[in-house]
Design a protein around this nucleic acid. Structure first.
Lengths: 336, 336
DNA sequence: CTGTTAGCGCATTCAA
DNA sequence: TTGAATGCGCTAACAG
């Protein structure tokens, strides 16, 4: 490994001067600087970040954390987030990706190791992690889940509104018996989407049936099971709002398995707009969530907080958008 | 930040002794060690890894690289790989994730920063990266693409055999006019699957039609386009082998869009066995690739290479498996 | 503008 | 078994 001392020797200067040249300090003459830089590049010098970080009390790394990498996080969600963050941070930063549940204690999460942390939060169990990070004074961006705490940047997708719009869309199409397949218990997103569903029903004066709200776990299998449960009812719903697309697809297949049709017999709406939603048969009407957008925005703000401003409280909602495709039937049209 | 010196003061010993206690050296009396450890935990001490790494010439980070994070890598592929690696490496390691195309030069990729590197390689353009890493003597595991070089660990999925089996399955069902929708140009996997397709045709004495081999890019849209191209032929194929599931699903929809049916009018086989393959209508027959398995095995071997043995040459193939579902028609059955 | 000196937090000689 | 001294590679304060 070539160090600044090696360069210093060849350039006949002190290693301090080399350091200055490398960090383009103003206190150096242009010619000497050029000479040093030339030697450095010829020697193929790369700084030792461990040494640099040690003295500068920095780490040059951004930590991207999920509630869990392997549990309940859909591949698309994971990928979109990483893509978003990755596209923003430059070469000079390390990007570390891990699940909170990979740690049994957070002692290794400190400001020596992380210049900043982005948390894609999916559950309240993340709170102890959040407190830990804040207490360590590490700049923090929390994505996807609302945090009341001050002193952090909080970027959210407006799931409740999105869910409400989806259900209102069903109502507008003449549906009255609208069921809900819920998301994974304990996930804030599950609650938000349920809230939106309820709000739409209530505001439109529709009855709320307990048996129309069935449990799900955000995976296809649970959507399949839940839909079967709904179809077994004496009075099955005419439309089902699924808390994510994976479950919507599972639900669709449960319908097909009984020889029924979507949307003729049951209308279905999903949530997320995963890539496949437009390739199901029929194409799935769903709510698009701005995951990548949020990740990008979050990364940008974190970088800014690290380099320029001290941590400030920010809360920002990015809107979802209803993507209307073919999985919802217009009951009004039928009556004509 | 509390350092070993702080502990030393409180324990009335030298910082050297503290260091020994923390790293359970044999040269320390059990009682003193216990006392020091007690104080350390009360002070909530965590080692400064920058300092530790600096003196030990280590980094405690594993680099997981993709050819590209944002380009041509499917979400499931990305997620499965990360999940696999993540599940193996312990808390004491950082998991660094980036795309090779995020770098315009590799000067920052050195053994100070990475204890070891796992590359999920998807294209020959990765070769310069591989050479760089090997030249820097960083323990390296290359996944997914065959590398001739000595001195690295190379874990592969046997795509060619998998593709051959898939096509042989079609042939066994009586198909003779079998088309291929190819993968992204330049990706080794695309070539391997094509080779398997060709091998199956040749070994079974079937004719090879140039117009039965159409280009694709591993995404659904290109599968859709390619299938349309095939259906426009004077003599359309009775079966199509798609180089991945995304394209297979796109292809299916192209068939549907013409009012035709799968598998009645066209049989389709995919590759990858992504989660949705079992929820398409009809359920997709496909080849399951051991992505997560390879990632897990790769991570284990890398960890071993880092801690125990010096880098040795290993090449290992994990088998794919044909998952038979409902998207292939048995032409022989029809004849009866 | 440049060099000398010191020190970041830690592991590792060498003596005791 | 313990401690004093040294250095990993780098930046920063200070003096010139």
């Amino acid at each position: 490994m070539v160090t600044i001392k090696d360069i210093a020797k060849l350039a006949n200067v002190s290693h301090t001067t080399v350091s200055r040249a490398l960090n383009n300090s103003p206190y150096i003459k242009e010619p000497t600087k050029r000479r040093i830089l030339e030697i450095a590049s010829q020697l193929n010098y790369t700084p030792n970040y461990n040494a640099k970080n040690l003295v500068m009390q920095k780490s040059h790394t951004i930590g991207l954390f999920f509630t869990s990498i392997s549990n309940g996080t859909s591949p698309i969600f994971l990928a979109d987030t990483i893509k978003g963050v990755n596209s923003v941070i430059g070469q000079e930063f390390n990007l570390f990706v891990r699940g909170i549940d990979d740690y049994d204690n957070f002692s290794s999460i400190n400001n020596m190791r992380f210049d900043g942390i982005i948390l894609m939060s999916q559950s309240e169990v993340d709170n102890t992690f959040i407190y830990h990070v804040m207490q360590k004074k590490i700049p923090l961006v929390v994505l996807n889940r609302e945090i009341q705490e001050q002193g952090l940047i909080n970027l959210l997708s407006n799931d409740e509104v999105g869910a409400r719009q989806a259900v209102e869309h069903l109502i507008a199409k003449g549906h009255k018996d609208i069921a809900l397949i819920e998301g994974k218990k304990g996930f804030k997103s599950a609650q938000a989407r349920k809230d939106g569903y309820m709000a739409a029903l209530i505001e439109n004066g529709l009855l709320i049936h307990k048996e129309y709200q069935v449990e799900g776990h955000y995976d296809m299998q649970s959507g399949y099971t839940a839909m079967n449960q709904l179809l077994d009812l004496n009075r099955p719903p005419t439309a089902v709002f699924c808390s994510n697309d994976d479950m919507a697809i599972g639900a669709m297949n449960a319908v097909f398995a009984r020889g029924l049709k979507v949307p003729d017999d049951v209308s279905i709406v999903g949530f997320d707009d995963i890539g496949f939603a437009q390739y199901t048969t029929p194409r799935l009407t769903t709510v698009k969530r701005p995951v990548e957008k949020i990740s990008i925005e979050g990364a940008k703000r974190l970088l800014f907080a690290i380099s320029k401003a001290p941590a400030q409280s920010v809360k920002l909602y990015e809107n979802t958008s209803l993507i209307i495709r073919d999985s919802v039937k217009d009951l009004k049209e039928e009556k004509r």
